[in-house]
Every structure is written in C-alpha cells, then in structure tokens.
C-alpha cells in the first residue's frame, strides 16, 4: 500500500485542521475545525481499511463529541468564558516555550521509534483471524471486541455508565431530562421522516455486527444521535422520561454484559467463556441491549448537560 495523492492530501488536511483547532483565537471556530478534523479522520480510517472505526469516528468522534463541544462553547463563552480567555492570554511565555520544546521532543522520540520499527510485523493478526474463524464470528473485530478481549469491553461499558453518573452528579443528581423549545418546522419534517430510517439502520448495525462492520457502539451512537435531534426539536415531549426507567435503561447494558460474564462462572467455566453453542446468540443479545444502553447514554450525556437555565435563543423566535 504505497502513498497515494489522496493520502498526502488527507494527512495535510488532518494536521492543518488539528493545528488550527488548537491555535484559532475564536472558540467557536476552533470547534468547527475540530469537527472537520473528525470527519477527515473518518476518511483516514477508510484509507487504513478500518470501516468499524470509521463508523464509530463519524458517529461518536465528529458527531456526539462535536455536539457536546458546541453546546459547552455556547454556555462557557457566555459564562466565565471571558475570564478563561483572559487567563489564556496570561499563560506565561516560559510555559508556552517549555510546552513547545517538550512537545517537539515527544514528536522526535515518537517519529524515531516509528521509523526504527518494522511497521509490517505480524503481531496478533494471524492468531486473531484464525480465532475468529474458529469461533464462527465473520467480523474479526467483533470477535476480538466481544470474545477474546470481552473483558475490556465490559469495563468500557462501565466507563460510559460512569460518565453518565458523573454528569448527573455534577447536575446534583437531576435525572435525565429532555430539553424542549420552539422547533424549526423544516427540521421537524426531516427528523420525523428520518427517525424510522435511523431506527432501522441502528438495528441493522447491531444485527450485521457479527459478520460485517457494525456493532453495539456504532449502532448506539447512531440511535443516540437520532434521539438527541428528536429531543432538541422537542419531539420527545409526549414521552415523559420517568427517572427510574431512564436509570434502568442506562444501567441495562452493563448489567446484561455482567450477567453474560458471570453465567459461565456459575456453570463452572471461566469468566466470559460463552458456551460454544450459545456464543452467537449471547453476543447478539448483549450487543442489542448494549446498543440501547449506549443510545440512552449518548442522548443522556447531551440532553442532561445541555439543559441549562439560560438556554434561551435556540430556533426561530
């Protein structure tokens, strides 16, 4: 795979977006540059033959993260943004110079390490690919994610639940509430017609996850993004979100995964050692519940944190 013109342009774009995301004076502009960085990096994942990651990057990296940043910038620019901006101007010259030298040294060390290591070493590729075939899961990434290193994913689901709990604790325990304000009729039409398609796509991603790119995280992020847009346009109003139910839905992913992990221990097998005959069924069930849980988490992280008292002027007056 030698260097194509597209690769060079993509890499130049990535570095340029990253630098301007850090250096631009205006906060909003730097976030827009970061979002375009996220989309370019989704392209980079495609060039590096990693479709699963491109899906996740587009949905989570550029989508949810970008939305969270824009929402925070909106609040912080009005709030103590000015104080922070002054604080920024006051970063002493020495800190800047020291930081730049340290970052340069870090880059030199990394570049030298990368250039002196044969990048094309076999590593775990063969073992993982044969293992995936053995286990009968066509998509090797899902095999690694939910079987060989399923314990990593279990802890990672815990990280997501932890993030929601942290955000709720910071809003002093208020349950997940749904923002609502005057909605743009055009967007309501689009979102209304797209909602079923989003639901279908999310369900397909979970189902296809075991054989082709997809899986719980990508489908959860997609579904979560759909719920966010519905929430922002106030179309979730009729469905009052009962705090108990929302908490259960948030914890369901982790609890399902823990149940799937502990069941083998009760049956005398090792932790997370699925029974061979039930492997695909268990993985699909866990991925399904996981997707629902992640969708609620992604939506909850955004809607819970975006409901701030002075959320005045969104949408047409």
């Amino acid at each position: 795979m030698n260097v194509a013109v597209l690769d060079v342009m993509l890499c130049a774009g990535l570095v340029w977006c990253a630098v301007s995301a850090l250096v631009k004076r205006d906060l909003f502009a730097s976030i827009v540059m970061f979002i375009s960085f996220g989309l370019l990096s989704a392209l980079a994942w495609i060039r590096l033959a990693a479709p699963d990651i491109a899906l996740a990057e587009a949905a989570i990296g550029a989508g949810a993260t970008g939305a969270l940043l824009l929402d925070a910038a909106g609040v912080l620019a009005r709030g103590d943004g000015s104080a922070a901006e002054d604080a920024e101007r006051r970063t002493p010259r020495s800190a800047n110079v020291l930081g730049t030298i340290a970052a340069g040294a870090l880059f030199a060390a990394l570049a030298w390490a990368l250039l002196s290591t044969p990048l094309d070493a076999p590593r775990l590729a063969a073992a993982a690919l044969t293992g995936a075939r053995e286990v009968g899961i066509a998509n090797p990434v899902t095999a690694v994610l939910l079987d060989f290193r399923g314990y990593d994913t279990l802890l990672e689901v815990a990280v997501l639940l932890l993030a929601v709990m942290g955000v709720m604790a910071l809003r002093s325990g208020a349950p997940v509430s749904v923002a609502s304000h005057a909605a743009d009729p055009l967007v309501r039409l689009l979102v209304g017609s797209l909602a079923p398609a989003v639901l279908l796509a999310a369900a397909y991603l979970v189902w296809a996850g075991t054989s082709s790119p997809g899986g719980a995280f990508q489908s959860g992020a997609l579904l979560g993004a759909g719920v966010i847009v519905l929430g922002l346009e106030g179309m979730l109003q009729p469905m009052r979100v009962h705090p108990g139910a929302s908490r259960l839905l948030l914890a369901a992913g982790l609890l399902a995964f823990v149940a799937a992990a502990l069941e083998p221990v009760a049956a005398g097998r090792a932790l997370l050692q699925y029974a061979p005959y039930a492997r695909k069924g268990v993985i699909l069930a866990v991925e399904g519940i996981l997707a629902l849980s992640i969708a609620t988490t992604v939506a909850g992280l955004f809607l819970a944190s975006s409901v701030t008292p002075d959320r005045g002027k969104a949408g047409r007056p």
Partner: peptide, 15 residues
Amino acid sequence: VVPLAAGAVSFALGR
C-alpha cells in the same frame, strides 16, 4: 465484576 455489578444495581435502584 461483583463490586461493578453492585455499583450498577445501586445506581439503577436510585436514591
């Protein structure tokens, strides 16, 4: 896994 599950249950049960 047991303390993790207990934490998730404790969160689900609420205040």
